[in-house]
Computed example of a mutant assay.
Amino acid sequence: MDLYEKIKELASQKNVSIRQVEENLGFANGTIRQWGRKNPGVNKVKDVAKYFNVSVDYLLGLDEDESTTQTVDLAELANKPKDFDWDSVLSVGGKPIPEEDKEIIRRLFAHKLSD
């Protein structure tokens, strides 16, 4: 299965179209469809992998295990310093969480570590 076919399968599992994936990632219409014929840039492949929470190796057929799921403890995250890079561990639909939403998470979960 090539890169495009894997992305198509992942999109189907997530009940989104290829076009919706492109829109969510800020890609031009037809970008991913072209990947069946030509090689994409590495940054775009990384973006797709992050969007579907799979490894780049899985998308490229180098690894059969698609899961890169890691548990994120919101209480632990909420108690990190404000300059912590949340985008490295948490996103919504493959996009960074807005600052106002991060603040809501901080308020909801801060200091819950002792509970």
Rank of each mutant, 00 (worst) to 15 (best):
T69W: 11
A11K: 00
L3S: 07
A49K: 02
N79T: 12
R19E: 04
I18Y: 00
R106P: 02
P96H: 09
G41C: 13
Q34E: 10
S55P: 02
V48Y: 01
K8E: 02
G94Q: 04
I97C: 04
L108S: 12
R107N: 14
Q70I: 10
L60Q: 14
A75F: 00
N39E: 11
A11F: 00
D115T: 13
R33V: 12
D2Q: 11
K80L: 11
N24M: 10
F27R: 09
Q34K: 14
K46A: 14
Q70M: 08
N53K: 14
K6W: 03
F84R: 08
I32A: 00
G94I: 06
K82D: 11
K112C: 10
L10D: 01
I32Y: 00
A28Y: 03
I32C: 02
P96R: 12
V42H: 10
S91I: 04
D115R: 14
Y4R: 15
Y4L: 12
K46E: 13
D65L: 11
G36K: 14
P96C: 07
W86R: 03
V72D: 00
K38Y: 11
S91D: 08
I104K: 13
N15F: 06
L25K: 05
N43V: 10
K82H: 08
E64T: 15
D87L: 02
K112F: 02
P98A: 10
Q13K: 15
N79Y: 02
A28I: 03
E23W: 05
L10V: 08
E5F: 05
Q13P: 01
N29H: 09
T71C: 02
E64R: 15
N53C: 09
K95A: 13
E103I: 15
R106E: 06
P81I: 10
A110G: 06
V56M: 12
S17A: 03
A49C: 05
Q34Y: 09
I18G: 01
V92N: 04
L60I: 14
N24Q: 12
G30F: 03
D47W: 05
F109N: 03
V72Y: 01
V54M: 03
Q20D: 10
P98Q: 11
Y4C: 09
L74N: 00
P98E: 07
K8W: 00
D87M: 06
K8C: 00
A75H: 05
S17G: 06
T69S: 12
L113D: 11
F109G: 03
F27G: 05
D83L: 09
F109A: 03
D63F: 07
D115S: 14
E9I: 13
D83S: 12
K95V: 10
R106S: 06
Q34M: 13
Q70L: 08
S55M: 10
K14I: 02
N53G: 10
K102A: 05
E23H: 10
D65K: 14
E99Y: 09
V89E: 01
P40K: 09
A49T: 04
I32V: 11
N24P: 02
N79P: 05
